[in-house]
Design a protein around this nucleic acid. Structure first.
Lengths: 151, 151
DNA sequence: GTGGCTGCAAAGAATTTGCAAAGGG
DNA sequence: CCCTTTGCAAATTCTTTGCAGCCAC
Protein backbone atom coordinates (compact mmCIF):
# COMPACT_ATOMS: atom_id res chain seq x y z
CA UNK A 1 0.00 0.00 0.00
CA UNK A 2 1.44 3.32 -1.05
CA UNK A 3 -0.73 5.24 1.40
CA UNK A 4 1.49 7.92 2.82
CA UNK A 5 1.07 9.69 6.07
CA UNK A 6 -1.19 12.72 5.46
CA UNK A 7 0.76 14.83 7.91
CA UNK A 8 3.86 14.15 5.93
CA UNK A 9 2.09 14.90 2.66
CA UNK A 10 0.92 18.24 4.00
CA UNK A 11 4.38 19.08 5.28
CA UNK A 12 5.85 18.30 1.90
CA UNK A 13 3.31 20.58 0.32
CA UNK A 14 4.10 23.37 2.77
CA UNK A 15 7.82 23.08 2.14
CA UNK A 16 7.33 23.11 -1.61
CA UNK A 17 5.41 26.34 -1.20
CA UNK A 18 7.94 27.85 1.17
CA UNK A 19 5.41 27.80 4.01
CA UNK A 20 6.08 26.61 7.51
CA UNK A 21 5.33 23.37 9.27
CA UNK A 22 3.74 24.11 12.61
CA UNK A 23 2.30 22.10 15.45
CA UNK A 24 -1.10 23.65 14.78
CA UNK A 25 -1.10 22.52 11.18
CA UNK A 26 -0.16 19.02 12.20
CA UNK A 27 -2.94 18.99 14.75
CA UNK A 28 -5.47 20.05 12.17
CA UNK A 29 -4.51 17.17 9.90
CA UNK A 30 -4.78 14.81 12.82
CA UNK A 31 -8.23 16.17 13.53
CA UNK A 32 -9.23 15.38 9.95
CA UNK A 33 -8.41 11.78 10.60
CA UNK A 34 -10.65 11.71 13.65
CA UNK A 35 -13.53 13.69 12.20
CA UNK A 36 -16.21 12.01 10.13
CA UNK A 37 -15.45 11.63 6.47
CA UNK A 38 -17.73 14.45 5.40
CA UNK A 39 -17.44 17.37 7.75
CA UNK A 40 -17.80 21.08 8.28
CA UNK A 41 -15.06 23.44 9.35
CA UNK A 42 -16.81 23.83 12.67
CA UNK A 43 -16.54 20.09 13.24
CA UNK A 44 -12.79 20.37 13.09
CA UNK A 45 -12.82 23.39 15.35
CA UNK A 46 -14.93 21.50 17.87
CA UNK A 47 -12.70 18.45 17.73
CA UNK A 48 -9.62 20.53 18.39
CA UNK A 49 -11.28 22.45 21.17
CA UNK A 50 -12.36 19.22 22.82
CA UNK A 51 -8.79 18.00 22.75
CA UNK A 52 -7.52 21.25 24.15
CA UNK A 53 -5.50 21.84 21.02
CA UNK A 54 -3.71 25.11 20.62
CA UNK A 55 -5.05 25.51 17.10
CA UNK A 56 -7.73 28.20 17.06
CA UNK A 57 -10.76 28.68 14.90
CA UNK A 58 -9.03 31.32 12.83
CA UNK A 59 -6.11 29.02 12.18
CA UNK A 60 -8.42 26.27 11.02
CA UNK A 61 -10.13 28.63 8.62
CA UNK A 62 -6.76 29.78 7.37
CA UNK A 63 -5.51 26.23 6.95
CA UNK A 64 -8.43 24.64 5.13
CA UNK A 65 -7.68 26.35 1.79
CA UNK A 66 -4.12 25.10 2.02
CA UNK A 67 -5.34 21.57 2.61
CA UNK A 68 -7.60 21.82 -0.40
CA UNK A 69 -4.73 23.00 -2.53
CA UNK A 70 -2.51 20.27 -1.16
CA UNK A 71 -5.06 17.76 -2.36
CA UNK A 72 -5.95 16.41 1.08
CA UNK A 73 -9.42 17.95 1.10
CA UNK A 74 -12.18 18.28 -1.45
CA UNK A 75 -14.93 20.85 -1.24
CA UNK A 76 -18.31 19.21 -0.97
CA UNK A 77 -21.74 20.76 -1.21
CA UNK A 78 -23.22 23.68 0.66
CA UNK A 79 -25.56 23.68 3.62
CA UNK A 80 -28.34 26.18 4.25
CA UNK A 81 -26.60 29.28 5.46
CA UNK A 82 -23.82 28.94 2.93
CA UNK A 83 -21.65 26.70 5.04
CA UNK A 84 -19.54 24.19 3.17
CA UNK A 85 -18.89 20.57 3.66
CA UNK A 86 -15.46 19.13 3.00
CA UNK A 87 -14.21 15.67 2.42
CA UNK A 88 -10.96 14.21 3.60
CA UNK A 89 -9.75 12.39 0.50
CA UNK A 90 -6.41 11.10 1.57
CA UNK A 91 -5.68 7.47 0.81
CA UNK A 92 -9.15 6.56 -0.35
CA UNK A 93 -10.33 5.28 -3.66
CA UNK A 94 -11.86 7.80 -5.96
CA UNK A 95 -15.62 8.15 -5.81
CA UNK A 96 -18.29 10.63 -6.76
CA UNK A 97 -21.26 11.88 -4.81
CA UNK A 98 -25.02 11.81 -4.91
CA UNK A 99 -26.37 14.59 -2.68
CA UNK A 100 -29.84 15.29 -1.39
CA UNK A 101 -30.80 18.92 -1.89
CA UNK A 102 -33.10 18.76 1.12
CA UNK A 103 -31.34 16.90 3.89
CA UNK A 104 -27.82 16.97 2.44
CA UNK A 105 -27.36 13.27 2.79
CA UNK A 106 -24.27 12.44 0.80
CA UNK A 107 -23.92 9.03 -0.83
CA UNK A 108 -20.68 7.93 -2.41
CA UNK A 109 -20.64 5.91 -5.57
CA UNK A 110 -18.24 4.77 -8.22
CA UNK A 111 -19.59 4.16 -11.70
CA UNK A 112 -17.10 2.60 -14.06
CA UNK A 113 -19.23 3.42 -17.09
CA UNK A 114 -19.22 7.12 -16.39
CA UNK A 115 -15.48 7.16 -15.94
CA UNK A 116 -14.95 5.36 -19.22
CA UNK A 117 -17.14 7.83 -21.07
CA UNK A 118 -15.21 10.67 -19.51
CA UNK A 119 -12.04 9.24 -20.98
CA UNK A 120 -13.75 9.11 -24.35
CA UNK A 121 -14.82 12.73 -24.12
CA UNK A 122 -11.33 13.84 -23.16
CA UNK A 123 -9.75 11.83 -25.94
CA UNK A 124 -12.21 13.18 -28.45
CA UNK A 125 -10.93 16.66 -27.65
CA UNK A 126 -7.32 15.56 -27.63
CA UNK A 127 -7.03 15.99 -23.87
CA UNK A 128 -5.06 13.83 -21.52
CA UNK A 129 -7.47 13.30 -18.64
CA UNK A 130 -6.06 13.94 -15.19
CA UNK A 131 -9.07 14.00 -12.91
CA UNK A 132 -12.66 15.00 -12.49
CA UNK A 133 -15.25 16.20 -10.05
CA UNK A 134 -18.81 14.95 -10.27
CA UNK A 135 -21.73 15.73 -7.99
CA UNK A 136 -25.25 14.52 -8.65
CA UNK A 137 -28.03 16.50 -7.00
CA UNK A 138 -31.45 15.17 -6.25
CA UNK A 139 -34.03 14.36 -3.62
CA UNK A 140 -33.48 11.29 -1.49
CA UNK A 141 -36.21 8.70 -0.88
CA UNK A 142 -36.93 9.94 2.64
CA UNK A 143 -37.39 13.53 1.57
CA UNK A 144 -39.56 12.45 -1.33
CA UNK A 145 -41.79 10.67 1.16
CA UNK A 146 -42.01 13.76 3.37
CA UNK A 147 -42.87 15.78 0.30
CA UNK A 148 -45.92 13.70 -0.48
CA UNK A 149 -46.93 13.43 3.15
CA UNK A 150 -47.25 17.19 3.19
CA UNK A 151 -43.77 18.67 3.71
CA UNK B 1 -35.66 24.39 -30.97
CA UNK B 2 -37.10 22.39 -28.13
CA UNK B 3 -36.05 24.93 -25.52
CA UNK B 4 -39.13 25.66 -23.50
CA UNK B 5 -39.93 28.91 -21.89
CA UNK B 6 -38.20 28.88 -18.50
CA UNK B 7 -41.02 30.79 -16.85
CA UNK B 8 -43.38 28.13 -17.96
CA UNK B 9 -41.04 25.40 -16.79
CA UNK B 10 -40.86 26.98 -13.37
CA UNK B 11 -44.60 27.41 -13.17
CA UNK B 12 -45.09 23.79 -14.06
CA UNK B 13 -42.72 22.85 -11.32
CA UNK B 14 -44.51 25.03 -8.80
CA UNK B 15 -47.87 23.57 -9.71
CA UNK B 16 -46.56 20.02 -9.44
CA UNK B 17 -45.40 20.86 -5.97
CA UNK B 18 -48.61 22.59 -5.01
CA UNK B 19 -46.80 25.92 -4.74
CA UNK B 20 -48.03 29.18 -6.16
CA UNK B 21 -47.18 31.05 -9.28
CA UNK B 22 -46.54 34.66 -8.39
CA UNK B 23 -45.45 37.77 -10.22
CA UNK B 24 -42.30 37.89 -8.11
CA UNK B 25 -41.28 34.39 -9.10
CA UNK B 26 -41.84 35.19 -12.75
CA UNK B 27 -39.74 38.30 -12.41
CA UNK B 28 -36.91 36.38 -10.87
CA UNK B 29 -36.84 33.96 -13.78
CA UNK B 30 -36.86 36.88 -16.18
CA UNK B 31 -33.93 38.34 -14.31
CA UNK B 32 -32.04 35.10 -14.81
CA UNK B 33 -32.41 35.53 -18.53
CA UNK B 34 -30.93 39.00 -18.35
CA UNK B 35 -28.13 38.20 -15.95
CA UNK B 36 -24.83 36.78 -17.16
CA UNK B 37 -24.63 33.04 -17.51
CA UNK B 38 -22.65 32.56 -14.30
CA UNK B 39 -23.94 34.82 -11.56
CA UNK B 40 -24.31 35.43 -7.85
CA UNK B 41 -27.54 35.81 -5.94
CA UNK B 42 -26.72 39.45 -5.39
CA UNK B 43 -26.52 39.96 -9.16
CA UNK B 44 -30.13 38.94 -9.43
CA UNK B 45 -31.11 41.15 -6.53
CA UNK B 46 -29.34 44.07 -8.17
CA UNK B 47 -30.98 43.43 -11.52
CA UNK B 48 -34.41 43.35 -9.97
CA UNK B 49 -33.76 46.44 -7.90
CA UNK B 50 -32.59 48.31 -10.99
CA UNK B 51 -35.80 47.40 -12.74
CA UNK B 52 -37.87 48.45 -9.80
CA UNK B 53 -39.20 44.94 -9.40
CA UNK B 54 -41.37 44.17 -6.43
CA UNK B 55 -39.34 41.05 -5.66
CA UNK B 56 -37.19 41.64 -2.63
CA UNK B 57 -33.86 40.24 -1.62
CA UNK B 58 -35.48 37.83 0.82
CA UNK B 59 -37.75 36.52 -1.88
CA UNK B 60 -34.84 35.94 -4.21
CA UNK B 61 -33.03 33.98 -1.53
CA UNK B 62 -36.17 31.98 -0.86
CA UNK B 63 -36.70 31.29 -4.55
CA UNK B 64 -33.23 30.21 -5.60
CA UNK B 65 -33.47 26.79 -3.93
CA UNK B 66 -36.74 26.20 -5.74
CA UNK B 67 -35.12 27.08 -9.04
CA UNK B 68 -32.31 24.68 -8.34
CA UNK B 69 -34.75 21.95 -7.53
CA UNK B 70 -36.76 22.77 -10.60
CA UNK B 71 -33.63 22.21 -12.64
CA UNK B 72 -33.39 25.75 -13.96
CA UNK B 73 -30.31 26.59 -11.95
CA UNK B 74 -27.15 24.72 -11.17
CA UNK B 75 -24.89 25.50 -8.27
CA UNK B 76 -21.51 26.54 -9.52
CA UNK B 77 -18.29 27.36 -7.73
CA UNK B 78 -17.92 29.04 -4.38
CA UNK B 79 -16.32 32.41 -3.90
CA UNK B 80 -14.17 33.47 -0.96
CA UNK B 81 -16.55 34.38 1.83
CA UNK B 82 -18.80 31.43 1.13
CA UNK B 83 -20.82 33.09 -1.59
CA UNK B 84 -21.97 30.88 -4.43
CA UNK B 85 -22.14 31.23 -8.14
CA UNK B 86 -25.06 29.78 -10.01
CA UNK B 87 -25.59 28.84 -13.59
CA UNK B 88 -28.79 29.31 -15.50
CA UNK B 89 -29.55 26.09 -17.31
CA UNK B 90 -31.89 26.29 -20.27
CA UNK B 91 -33.75 23.02 -20.16
CA UNK B 92 -31.71 20.55 -22.10
CA UNK B 93 -28.99 22.98 -23.12
CA UNK B 94 -27.08 21.61 -20.20
CA UNK B 95 -23.38 21.06 -20.67
CA UNK B 96 -20.37 20.04 -18.65
CA UNK B 97 -16.83 21.32 -18.76
CA UNK B 98 -13.47 20.00 -19.81
CA UNK B 99 -10.75 22.23 -18.37
CA UNK B 100 -7.05 22.39 -19.12
CA UNK B 101 -5.01 22.50 -15.94
CA UNK B 102 -2.23 24.41 -17.68
CA UNK B 103 -3.80 27.07 -19.85
CA UNK B 104 -7.28 26.97 -18.28
CA UNK B 105 -8.96 26.54 -21.61
CA UNK B 106 -12.56 25.61 -20.88
CA UNK B 107 -14.44 23.43 -23.35
CA UNK B 108 -18.13 22.75 -23.00
CA UNK B 109 -19.48 19.36 -23.89
CA UNK B 110 -22.62 17.30 -23.52
CA UNK B 111 -22.39 13.54 -23.35
CA UNK B 112 -25.71 11.82 -23.40
CA UNK B 113 -24.26 8.53 -22.24
CA UNK B 114 -22.92 10.04 -19.06
CA UNK B 115 -26.24 11.64 -18.29
CA UNK B 116 -28.06 8.39 -18.78
CA UNK B 117 -25.72 6.59 -16.43
CA UNK B 118 -26.24 9.33 -13.88
CA UNK B 119 -29.94 8.69 -14.00
CA UNK B 120 -29.26 5.02 -13.39
CA UNK B 121 -27.09 5.78 -10.39
CA UNK B 122 -29.71 8.08 -8.90
CA UNK B 123 -32.50 5.62 -9.50
CA UNK B 124 -30.48 2.82 -7.98
CA UNK B 125 -30.37 4.82 -4.74
CA UNK B 126 -34.00 5.83 -4.93
CA UNK B 127 -33.15 9.45 -5.68
CA UNK B 128 -35.09 11.76 -7.94
CA UNK B 129 -32.29 13.35 -9.95
CA UNK B 130 -32.46 17.11 -10.24
CA UNK B 131 -29.11 18.11 -11.65
CA UNK B 132 -25.41 17.55 -11.61
CA UNK B 133 -22.09 19.26 -11.78
CA UNK B 134 -19.27 17.66 -13.75
CA UNK B 135 -15.82 19.05 -14.43
CA UNK B 136 -13.14 17.07 -16.21
CA UNK B 137 -9.57 18.16 -15.63
CA UNK B 138 -6.75 17.43 -18.02
CA UNK B 139 -4.07 18.73 -20.33
CA UNK B 140 -5.14 20.11 -23.69
CA UNK B 141 -3.40 19.14 -26.94
CA UNK B 142 -1.46 22.39 -27.18
CA UNK B 143 -0.09 22.11 -23.69
CA UNK B 144 0.81 18.48 -24.26
CA UNK B 145 2.85 19.52 -27.26
CA UNK B 146 4.63 22.21 -25.26
CA UNK B 147 5.27 19.64 -22.57
CA UNK B 148 7.19 17.39 -24.93
CA UNK B 149 9.00 20.32 -26.47
CA UNK B 150 10.46 20.99 -23.03
CA UNK B 151 7.91 22.97 -21.02
C1' DG C 1 17.42 37.20 13.23
C1' DT C 2 13.54 37.51 9.87
C1' DG C 3 9.27 36.88 8.16
C1' DG C 4 5.57 33.95 8.43
C1' DC C 5 2.09 32.05 11.86
C1' DT C 6 -1.06 32.36 15.70
C1' DG C 7 -4.78 33.78 19.01
C1' DC C 8 -8.18 36.82 20.18
C1' DA C 9 -12.08 39.24 19.31
C1' DA C 10 -14.39 42.35 16.57
C1' DA C 11 -15.63 43.33 11.89
C1' DG C 12 -17.78 41.97 7.65
C1' DA C 13 -20.87 39.37 4.68
C1' DA C 14 -24.18 36.39 3.19
C1' DT C 15 -28.36 34.18 4.29
C1' DT C 16 -32.34 33.23 7.26
C1' DT C 17 -36.32 34.31 10.04
C1' DG C 18 -40.71 36.48 12.32
C1' DC C 19 -44.78 38.77 11.65
C1' DA C 20 -48.64 40.92 9.67
C1' DA C 21 -50.60 42.02 5.31
C1' DA C 22 -51.66 40.69 0.45
C1' DG C 23 -52.98 37.49 -3.03
C1' DG C 24 -53.33 32.91 -5.62
C1' DG C 25 -56.34 28.95 -6.33
C1' DC D 1 -61.85 31.60 2.41
C1' DC D 2 -57.47 29.16 3.49
C1' DC D 3 -52.91 28.86 3.12
C1' DT D 4 -48.84 30.32 0.77
C1' DT D 5 -45.97 34.20 -0.23
C1' DT D 6 -44.02 38.62 0.54
C1' DG D 7 -41.38 42.78 2.49
C1' DC D 8 -38.88 44.64 5.92
C1' DA D 9 -35.17 44.61 8.87
C1' DA D 10 -33.15 42.48 12.68
C1' DA D 11 -30.85 38.33 13.83
C1' DT D 12 -27.93 34.55 12.98
C1' DT D 13 -24.01 32.40 11.41
C1' DC D 14 -20.00 31.62 8.79
C1' DT D 15 -15.63 33.63 7.52
C1' DT D 16 -12.15 37.19 7.39
C1' DT D 17 -9.14 40.57 9.40
C1' DG D 18 -5.78 43.53 12.46
C1' DC D 19 -2.29 43.45 15.59
C1' DA D 20 1.31 42.09 18.83
C1' DG D 21 3.99 38.36 20.23
C1' DC D 22 5.89 33.71 19.12
C1' DC D 23 8.31 30.38 16.48
C1' DA D 24 10.11 27.73 12.41
C1' DC D 25 13.89 27.90 9.55
Amino acid sequence: MATRDPIRMFRDYLRRKGLRCTAERDEIVQALQRTSHHFRVEDVVADLAARGSSASRATVYRTVPLLVEAGLLCVGDALPGGEFTYEFVHGRDHHDHLCCLRCHERIEFAERGIELLQIDVARHHGYRLVGHHLDLFGICPKCQALEQGGG
